[in-house]
Design a protein around this nucleic acid. Structure first.
Lengths: 174, 174
DNA sequence: TCGTCATGGGTGACGTGTCACCGACACAGT
DNA sequence: ACTGTGTCGGTGACACGTCACCCATGACGA
C-alpha cells in the first residue's frame, strides 16, 4: 500500500478524471434535454422510474429507494412536478400515512417524448466514444464500487431497503 | 451498430451504474467533508485550485477554466466564500475590468486541514475497492471520453480555453 | 470619431437540494 | 393507559446552480 495520506499521480488523474468525465457528460445531456423538452435530469429520473412501475404508480418510499434519493429531495421534487401536472399524489388505502405517486397523462407524454432524445444524447456523448471492452471494464468497475459501498453499509448499521424495488438508478435514465 | 433508438441491456446497466456509482461516492464524500470541516465540495474544489496556483491567486476566468464551471456559478461561489472569509477579491492592475481571487489565511488553513480528510474519504469509498488494472481501465476510459467531448467541441464552434491553465478538474480534489 | 462586437465580470430571480424539525400512525414494553 | 421508538411523509429556511440580463473595457473597421 502506498502512503495513505495522499494520492499518487495515477490515482490523482484517475479520480479527477472520474469526476470531470461524469460532470461533463451529465451537464451536456441535462442541458440538451432541458432545452428540447423542458425536463430536468431529476424530472426525467422520476418519470422513468414511474414509467417502469406497473400502472405508473409507486409508493413514495419505493421511488426513493429506486432513485437512491434523500427523502426531502423527493418530496420537493414531487411537489414541483405535481404543480406542473406531470405526476399526481394519491392517498394509500392500506397505509393511512402512506402516499402514491402516479404518472399523469401529461407525464406519460413527457417521458415517451423525451426518452428517445435522451438515448440519443447518451449515445452521442458517451457510448459513441467507447469500445466494447471499455464498456465491459465500466460494468466491472461499477459492480466493484457499488458492492464495496453496500458492504460498508452492511457492516455498519445501515439496513437493507425497506421494500423490493427493481434496481438502483440515479439521475438520468435510461 | 445496434438500434440507435434505444440502449441494449449492457449499455443500460453500464450507463445507470456510471451515474449511480458517481452519485453515491460523491455524496458520501461530500457529506463527510461537510460535517468534518464545514466545506462543501464546491468550496473544496475552489480552495484546491487556488492552493495549486502560485501565491494562491488566480484570475477569475482561470479558475473558471480550471474547474470547468459556468461563469455565474463561480461568481456566486466566490461571493459566498468571500463573505465567509475563505477567499478575497483583488482588482487587477493590468486589466481594469479583470479581478483576482486570492486565498486568505483562513482559506489556507481550511484547505490544509481538509485535504488529508478528503484523501482518506476518496481512498475509503473509491480506491480501496479497486484493483490496479481497474484504475488503469478508468484512466483509459476518462481519456477516451474527454477526448471525444473535446473533439466534438472542436469540430463545432467552441474555441480553446482563453488561457493556459494547469488542467481540468471538476468538483472534488485531489 | 462613432458604432459594433467580443471579453471579463457581476446581479437578481428562480428552480433545485439539504438540514432541522414536525405530524400522524403503529407497535413495543411497562 | 402511557411512554418510547420506528416508519412514512411533509414543511420552511437556507445554500447552491442556472438563466437572462446588465455594465465596463478594449479592439476594429466605417
Amino acid at each position: 500500500m502506498t502512503d495513505p495520506a495522499w494520492l499518487d499521480e495515477r490515482e490523482q488523474r484517475a479520480w479527477r478524471g472520474f469526476l470531470a468525465v461524469n460532470a461533463a457528460v451529465r451537464s451536456r445531456i441535462a442541458r440538451q434535454l432541458q432545452q428540447e423538452t423542458g425536463l430536468s435530469s431529476a424530472d426525467y429520473a422520476v418519470l422513468v422510474s414511474l414509467s417502469e412501475a406497473p400502472g405508473g404508480r409507486l409508493r413514495v418510499f419505493q421511488l426513493r429507494v429506486a432513485a437512491d434519493w434523500e427523502k426531502t429531495r423527493l418530496t420537493h421534487q414531487i411537489t414541483r412536478m405535481t404543480s406542473r401536472g406531470l405526476v399526481a399524489r394519491e392517498p394509500c388505502v392500506d397505509d393511512p400515512r402512506g402516499a402514491f405517486v402516479v404518472l399523469t397523462e401529461a407525464g406519460w407524454d413527457a417521458i415517451t417524448g423525451a426518452a428517445p432524445l435522451h438515448v440519443a444524447h447518451v449515445r452521442r456523448w458517451f457510448f459513441d466514444a467507447l469500445r466494447p471492452e471499455q464498456v465491459e471494464a465500466l460494468l466491472d468497475l461499477n459492480d466493484t464500487v457499488l458492492g464495496h459501498l453496500r458492504e460498508a453499509d452492511r457492516t455498519m448499521g445501515v439496513p437493507c431497503p425497506p421494500c423490493d424495488v427493481p434496481s438502483s438508478c440515479d439521475d438520468v435514465l435510461p
